[in-house]
């Protein structure tokens, strides 16, 4: 059956009104309150806290996923996430500042080539999802 394309003015008004209300409300939704930027000292503290725990996290991840490098690294990052969230919430600072601080710290030495030593687990471990998760 072919659709009846006769329009009702009232129906059109309702549709447009709905679309407008949704659009306007979405656009006028309040901006989230931005957290403050971390101070230089806080950045150093966050970076140091992460750096000091990395070895322990990697050992833990190796125990969770023996012989599975990608899963180990993924688990390592899950543990890192927990610490980052804990610290940024405790200090009330932006998560991006923590990420930047960690990255700056990791980049501080500045490796020159792929074969350089990798104490900070900065070398990529190619993505190899487990064949099932549950």
């Amino acid at each position: 059956m072919a659709p009846d394309l006769r329009t009702s003015a009232a129906a059109l008004v309702v549709t447009i009104a709905c679309a407008l209300v949704v659009t306007v409300r979405a656009l006028r939704a309040p901006e989230p309150q931005a957290k403050r930027s971390a101070t230089a000292a806080e950045r150093l503290e966050i970076a140091a806290s992460i750096a000091s725990s990395e070895k322990e996290w990697m050992d833990e991840a190796r125990q969770h996923f023996p012989e599975d490098h990608w899963s180990q690294r993924d688990d390592f990052h899950a543990l890192e996430l927990r610490r980052i969230v804990e610290m940024v919430e405790q200090k009330g600072v932006r998560v991006e500042d923590a990420l930047q601080a960690i990255d700056d710290d990791i980049h501080r030495k500045g490796a020159r080539d792929p074969a350089a030593s990798d104490e900070r687990y900065a070398r990529a471990v190619p993505c190899k999802p487990r064949p099932f998760y549950d």
Binding site: H107, K109, R120, A124, C127, P129
Partner: peptide
């Protein structure tokens, strides 16, 4: 959050094995 500040994340999860180079590094000068 990494993307927002111009950082690429070498930590990678996807539903398929993304072809990645083991030579990628997140600490290059």
């Amino acid at each position: 959050h990494h993307q927002g500040i111009g950082l690429g994340s070498l930590s990678c999860w996807e539903t398929y094995p993304v072809i990645m180079s083991p030579k990628l590094r997140g600490d290059l000068a």
